[in-house]
């Protein structure tokens, strides 16, 4: 197992796994409307383990850069949401990052799975 993880393939896969996690975090950030405004239950939960400040701070730090860009792009494309509703532009960001995460995940699975796809079958010798 350890050997596998440290092989070149294992390292590539770790990188992929890291990328999927990172993009999934962005999904959460998008769902909050590109801000760090976590719902109460999450605020409570993360405060208990002492991480709330870090998470909200990180999320908020993305708002003026990435958040601004995404918002501008979507508004430029004519997307508008009813401010009185619970819909948000973040829904579109969520779907974008979900797409990216699925792509990375799909490619990673293909890298793992291609071992057993072959153009050649050598018959196992039976004892």
């Amino acid at each position: 197992m350890i050997k596998y993880i440290l092989s070149p393939k294992g390292i590539i896969l770790l990188a992929f796994a890291g990328a999927v996690v990172a993009v999934s975090v962005l999904m959460a950030w998008s769902e909050l409307g590109f801000t760090g405004a976590t719902p109460d239950w999450l605020t409570d939960l993360t405060s208990r383990i002492g991480l709330h400040g870090a998470i909200a701070g990180f999320f908020n730090s993305l708002t003026p850069s990435l958040g601004e860009d995404l918002t501008k792009y979507l508004q430029g494309k004519g997307v508008s949401v009813n401010p009185k509703s619970t819909a948000s532009l973040g829904d579109y960001g969520y779907i974008l990052f979900m797409g990216v995460a699925l792509t990375i995940g799909g490619i990673a699975i293909m890298i793992i799975g291609r071992e057993d796809a072959e153009e050649k079958t050598v018959l196992p010798v039976k004892k």
Binding site: E118, E119, K120
Partner: peptide, 16 residues
């Protein structure tokens, strides 16, 4: 399937 005694080292399959 192949019979038990068949020497499987002598068989190769290619999918090309």
């Amino acid at each position: 399937t192949l019979k038990k005694g068949t020497d499987r080292r002598r068989i190769l399959a290619l999918w090309l």
